[in-house]
Amino acid sequence: MNWVNAVVQGLLLGGLFALFACGLSLLFGVVGVINLAHGDFAVLGAYVAVLLLPSTATNALWALLFVPPLFGFFGYLLQRTLLQRSLEISPLTTLLVTFGLSVVVQNGLLEAFSADSHSFNVGSLVTSSFKVDEQLQVSYLRLGVLLVAIAVLSVLSLFLARSRTGIQIRAVADDREAAQMSGVNTRHIVGVAAAIAFATVALAGLAYGMTAQFAPYSGSALLLFAFEAVVIGGIGSLWGTLGGGLILGLAQSIGFQIDPSLGVLAGHLVFLGVLAFRPTGLVPARAAA
């Protein structure tokens, strides 16, 4: 019965990973930037919520409404200024620049909030759960995170498939120059994609902050998990990203079940296995050149 529990908890954890990975995947797929500061921005999102809102249960939920749009705006500006400029120099420059941003964010947070861990006060929500049977308890909060992840990915993929802006994002991701030749204002569209990516990063950071303690350096581990989820799922596929997140969550949870010290390692091993045997990921990108 413990195994059922491990699987369920793994899927719930995977929802969080999928939420993390979504922004990374979008920013890489459309904008062409591998954002090494991804995890740190997520943590920054959590700190921004701590800073803006005194810790009471209702306020923590308000943060969900305010912080992602704020980050979206910030992401647009960052893309139109710093990231766009570094992209014009070379793809390698974007790695250096985002690595630099990561250092700046980590140390800025350290300076402002000290190295102590923080967490959100979401009141009784953090402990409340429902019992499926004696050995299987499901936390409302973690279930909520998984549902939010699924909702975000569904809305996003509908948006990309159907909307006027979404179709431009796909065109730009495919061939930026040809998109421009079709009249697409590529800089603006890339900025919009970055805005969406940053809004989801903030959302992931908030979800993380509600379910775990976070400190200024927490971002690095989050970046790694997000990367792994993206690679397992297949770069450029949103549903693959969800799958990748769930698989990573499962691997960690089952590993943990075998031996508590094995959890994270099991996730890495699955990631390495996918990289070795199926480097395009489980769901290869739609593009078939």
Binding site: A171, A173, D174, D175, A179, A285, A287, A288, A289
Partner: peptide
């Protein structure tokens, strides 16, 4: 050299 958006 045609440059269609291959994924669309």
């Amino acid at each position: 050299v045609p440059r269609p958006f291959v994924g669309m």
